[in-house]
Design a protein around this nucleic acid. Structure first.
Lengths: 155, 155
DNA sequence: TTTTGATTGTTATGATCATAACGATTGGCA
DNA sequence: TGCCAATCGTTATGATCATAACAATCAAAA
């Protein structure tokens, strides 16, 4: 039986800090993300869109044409990763790219008409998915969770 | 300028629910997990161990010999995924496997001596990593975060 | 003007993930 | 005993991830 603190017990005993996988925040975050992600795929999976793909589309929809690199930063993906996502979306004609005439390094990414219409259709659905994922929490708990997660992510 | 509620304004205007990627809990969870994971790799990366690999080792350390399938469930991995992780750990002689003599379907997984010693060495380090990830939160906030994440993951 | 450093994107490698289809084994049940 | 559903593990496919090394482009400084 593990003890984390004792008084007057064997003084020389080295107290191992209790380790439980369930207490590691990374493990909890991975499982919670699994849940959120599967909720989303459950609803928009028929469109063959993954959560990162949808996040990418939503960001372009919000910002308009922008460089692939900036897009990656805005959806928290490394350059190598956002490149692959853009390629897949491009193959499906949801997104199109062009070189920036003013800066030969940049690849400008924008939504195609069908990409725009798909995003518009799915935005409300993702809002519902988020609601479903948070269904067990009241308004105050949701607000707290957002604040705490935000602090973790931005730290 | 988006408005979520108006009074006496154009009554027929359909009010688009405001969508912001930052408000989608899946996006927040992904970013928070990125942070937690990179904190861990920062500390135990020299051992060439990833977060899921370490979770797997820790679970075997806690439970002792167990079947690959059960191990997967206990670390939230699909059978196909835990298989790959076990193969990699096996290749590095941190883990060993044997067929269950009583049930020919099962593959029993256990730690090797060097696996055991590595886990023992790294357990306190992961506890430190979790503390670092949560550094910006006070005790009450930590407790709340755990409870809310747990409810999300188990829902 | 030339050089130097920073930024952008690509390539390569390897690990995580989910899903579906499949064979082998087991255990219960007719 | 013989069948049958459930369980376990594997294979295959495709998408996410991080990291490192690299070329091209740009910008600022010498």
């Amino acid at each position: 039986m593990p003890r984390t603190s004792t008084k007057g017990a064997a003084a020389a005993a080295r107290v191992e800090p209790a380790y439980r996988l369930e207490d590691q925040v990374g493990f909890l975050l991975r499982r919670a993300y699994q849940r959120a992600s599967s909720n989303l795929v459950e609803r928009i999976g028929q469109y063959d869109l993954t959560a990162p793909q949808f996040a990418t589309l939503a960001r372009i929809h919000e910002r308009g044409t922008l460089s692939q690199n900036l897009l990656g930063r805005l959806v928290a993906m490394e350059p190598a990763n956002i490149r692959d996502v853009v390629l897949r979306l491009k193959k499906r004609r949801l997104v199109m790219t062009q070189r920036d005439p003013d800066d030969g390094r940049l690849i400008l990414v924008s939504l195609t008409p069908s990409g725009t219409s798909l995003v518009s259709e799915l935005l409300p659905i993702e809002i519902e998915c988020t609601a479903k994922t948070l269904a067990g929490l009241n308004a105050n708990e949701k607000r707290l969770l957002y604040e705490l997660l935000g602090r973790l992510a931005d730290s």
